[in-house]
Every structure is written in C-alpha cells, then in structure tokens.
Design a binder for these strands. Structure first.
Length: 131
RNA sequence: GAAUCAUGUUGGGCAGUUGCUCUCUGAUUUUUAUGAAAUCAGGGGGAGGAAAGUCCGAACACCACAGAACAGGGUGCCGGGUAACGCCCGGGGGCCUGAAGACGUAAGUCUCAGGUUACGGAAAGUGCCACAGAAAAAAUACCGCCCUGUUAUAACAGGGUAAGGGUGAAAAGGCGAGGUAAGAGCUCACCGCUCCGAUAGUAAUAUCGGAGGUCUCGUGAUGAACGAGAUCCUGCAAAAUUGCAGGACAAGGCAAACCCCACCCGGUGCAAGGUCAAGCAGAAGGCCUCCCUUUUAACAGGGAAAGGGUUGUUCGCCCUAAGUGCCUUCGGGUAGACCGCUGGACCACGAUAGUAAUAUCGUGGCUAGAUAAAUAACUGCCACCCGCUCUAUGGCGGGUACAGAAUUCGGCUUAUAGACAUGAUUCAUCA
RNA sequence: GCGGGCGUAACUCAGUUGGUAGAGUAGUAGCUUCCCAAGCUAAAUGUCGCGGGUUCGAGUCCCGUCGCCCGCU
C-alpha cells in the first residue's frame, strides 16, 4: 500500500455508506467555518479510514467545484497517516466526509492548495482527539 | 506602420516529484482452478471550441401502429446542399450606410460597394385601431368653398363639394393642366398601383408592351354618375353570321390577433433497453438415522453413527434433530454486477466536379470512456502582458481568458485573455 | 439526463380580446390625544429581471439571455 496513495478502497463509493453518514454521523466545522466534516465510527467494517469529498452544487460552477474537490483530496492524501495510525491502533472503521461550508466561488475565485491544507489539517486533528 | 470592423485558425511550452483512471505485459498470493480476484512493477492512452445553455434536427432503443381524416404543434421569398433540420450556400425583393462614377442649380435619381432582413396570404371570413378628431373603413360635412330658399345682407334652413384648414401613428394614390357654381381620376399627360401578354431565368423576379373609339336614349337642376342600346376592336365557341366573354384606379394598417393556404411531424427517452443475480417473500419436491431399556404409542434414558464449528491434521470439547429446521428445483425479480459504451453521416492530406454549401475518389491514422463520477497537485525554467526599482540584454512582485465529457453525431445560441493569417476602411510617414 | 413553473413598489400579491400599472402591509407628513396605540386624511415610492424585435403603442405578443424554485431516480 502506497504511503501517499488514495485508492478506490479508501474512498466511499456506496450509496448506503453515504446514507449511514448523513443519518447517524456527527458534524464538525473548521475554525474559519469554511469547511465541515461528517464522521461516523463503524464497528463492523474493515479497519482503516474511508473518505469522500463533497462540494455543494450551489457553491460554484463545475470547474471550480472540481478544483476544490481535487485540492481537498490532495490535502487529505498527503496527511492521511495521522488518522490511519490511530484507527489501526484502536482497530476501528472510520467513515469521513469532507465538505465545503461557507466557501464558494464568489468568495474565492482563485483557490490554492495552501488555502485549503490548514483547514483540512484542523478538521483531521479535531477528529483525532474525539476518537 | 497604427487603429477599427469582418472572416478564419489557435486556445502556452519543457522538466522533475507525488497521485487517480483505463488498457497491455510480467511476478506473487488467494480461490469454487486452461478462469477470476487482490497487490506490486514496467509500457501506452487520458476534456473543449464552446465539453455550457438544452433551442432545433437525426442515429439508436423500447412502446403503439391496416389506411385515411380531424385535433394539436412547427416551418414560411426562390433554387440548391444534406441522413435530417428552424442549419448552410447561392440568387431575388425590401431597408440602412458609404461615397468611387454619371445626370442634375439643388433636392435627388441611376450605377457600384458593404451591411441587414420571422420576407406566404389583408381581393375567403371574423376581430382590433385607445386619446384626439366631423369621420378610423364599402365612412364622414366641424371650419371652409359653392348653389337655392327665408327675411331686417347678416344669420338660419335645405342641398352640393373631400381642393384647403384642423386632429391623429395612420384620413381613401402623387403632381400638373383641363374642367366646374364650387370641386373631385370627373378627364388628360407623367409617375405609382393592379391585371394581361411577350422576352430572360429552373424559380423568386426583372425588362418591355398593352389595359378602347364613336353615337343614341332614359333617370338626374347643370356637371359628374348610373342604366339601356347600336357600330367598330380583341379572344373563344359553333359554324357562315351568330352567341358568349373582356376592356381597370378597384384594395388604410395589424396575421410575432383569430384565421386561410402550402409543406412537415406517432410517443417516450441510454435514468431507453438487455443479460446475470445475493437477501426477503412465494410455489413444488425431498430429508430429519440405527440399536438397547421402558411403553399400546409418543415422550424419556443410554450407546453408536452422521452433519457443522473450533487452530493446518488427529484426539478432545461444543452445537444439531418434527420446526422461526435443513436441502434441491422453479418462475418473477430487488440490492448489486455486467452489456449498451465508443470505429464513426470519424479525422488529416491530396485530386476531381461545382460560383459556393457540399459530394466522390485515393492515401494514411485510431484519437477519453469515468459512474459519489478519473484526466490532477506542487516545484523550477522559458514565453507573453502589467507595475515598481535600478548597477538598464538586469532584479523584484503580480497576472495569462471562458470554462469540465456522462449514449453518439449535425447545427444554432451564449461566454471568452492573448496570438496569428487574409480582406476592407481611415490616419500618419517616405519615395 | 429529462420535464414543469415563477421574476411587477421595501414586503405579499392583482393586472385579458395590447391603450397613461393597482390593492393590502410597512414607511413619510398632517389631524385627533396630556402622551402613546388605534382611527381619519394626504402625498410619495416602479429602468414591470435584462437585451432585441413586431406594432402608432408592449407588464401583456415573438426571439434570445440571466436568476430562482419544483418534479422524475
């Protein structure tokens, strides 16, 4: 398994998993309110982290939404070791959605990786403390 | 050389690191084993001119369907192109702009160049045209003009009149002459309009020509107008001199009001549709052992065997038996998976036909296929633009558009930084 | 992907054979009251989402465009 990789097994793809998260998951927000995260600790599945990135249709046009999702994924991919080691220690299955909250195309037309990375790290550290 | 406009092409490049997706090759592991899955390594492919809006047209799929008509919807100068179109090309008419040329004192007209155009029918019928105005459509007399009558020559009454005034977006062809009581296509010339004929053209359309004369009678205050008749003219029919028809100023605008005419259209859309198929529910069938004790039998007790689980094997241990039981088969089919899914009205170049759109032929090429949805992130260098600074072939900072495939094509519309090419116009400089 | 609807005053909505755009609430000014509320009176408020076209004249008819909402799975 690659250290910085993010293969299809590590992403949420099934509709049932999304429904589980949206009905039973807990929501937390980043410090600047720009991003939010929904997480759920599943006792049944395999040990590890499964993640998805969601950007609302109202926040911008397709090009902008794609770029934000790619930047979110990049930020998670480079830092996923933080959560992965925790989950392997405690032997739990963590489902996670990282989503945009107040961030939209009108606020930041040009977004860069260094705008997104600290927000994602903040969210991941919050989850780490709560596990 | 610069600016503007139009049309067309293009839509930053190179290298490194870390990733995603499809595909090919190889290795390892697992397994229900010539197969499949997972992981790793290597090679190759990986957004657009609009992928967008979803406004049209098709392919393809399913449903419906003998055929025709109605309803409903769409299109609308003419010809061509196309699989088809509301698209494209060419031509015609209208409108606008320009000024090169011709005519003219000028206004302007003609020619030319460019742009633009939802451009069938108002003489099938219905409807609408606010306010103003006398009157808004087979009409009408407010002011004015003219005639007649009454009387106290200034008014009233009756009538004629659409030339002038006034109203309005629009007032019943324009202009001049004749004519008249005053006027009027009332008549005439020219222009315009409509119809007919000829010529050119496939056609829209363009050009040219033509669209009666004389006389009599009646109604009418004159004039006009209307009606009737005779003769000549043109065409047709009969047939040997007869019959019929024609000879016009008629017709304001609106059909993106209803409508009429011509042509076209069955409906739904890849979330179409198809294949496999857990689980749950349903139907059919089968299995649930043997021995001993006791008993009518069942139950119960003991033993043996069977099936499953436990750590790779054996032993051992645990669970199982007439009910929420187990097994097999069947049809429909949910979750899910797979197919549809990318080689096609394809792309590039060349030749031929055509004014062109386009078509045909030849050669070469294969160019995304995801599905909570890949095609990316970061760094460095270069290219272009802007700002600041200065040691001026430099340094620093910032910027490089619009925008992301989702069954696939043909168009249209809209968004768009910059670069390049061609053409037109204007300006400047030089010869 | 496909289909349907709506944009009018600060807010909620009317607006039909196309003819100067209204109602309620809110706000403003005045009257009333010792003061406030309620009540009465008056005036003001609109690029009818935007851009074209048809028409003498478009909120209304036609075309394009922008924004918002809803349904189908």
């Amino acid at each position: 398994m690659k250290i910085f990789g993010l293969s299809a097994k590590e992403r949420i793809k099934k509709k049932k998993e999304f429904e589980l998260l949206y009905t039973k998951g807990k929501t937390i927000y980043s410090a600047s309110q720009k991003l939010k995260a929904i997480y759920y600790i599943n006792s049944i599945g395999q040990v590890g982290v499964k993640v998805a990135f969601v950007v609302s249709r109202k926040s911008g046009k397709a090009v902008w939404r794609n770029r934000l999702k790619r930047l979110l994924r990049e930020s998670f991919r480079l830092n996923k070791a933080i959560l992965k080691s925790m989950c392997e220690e405690k032997k739990i299955n963590l489902l996670l959605i990282i989503s945009s909250n107040t961030l939209n195309q009108k606020n930041n037309k040009k977004i860069k990786l260094w705008d997104i990375m600290p927000e994602v790290l903040d969210l991941m550290n919050q989850i780490k403390l709560r596990i």
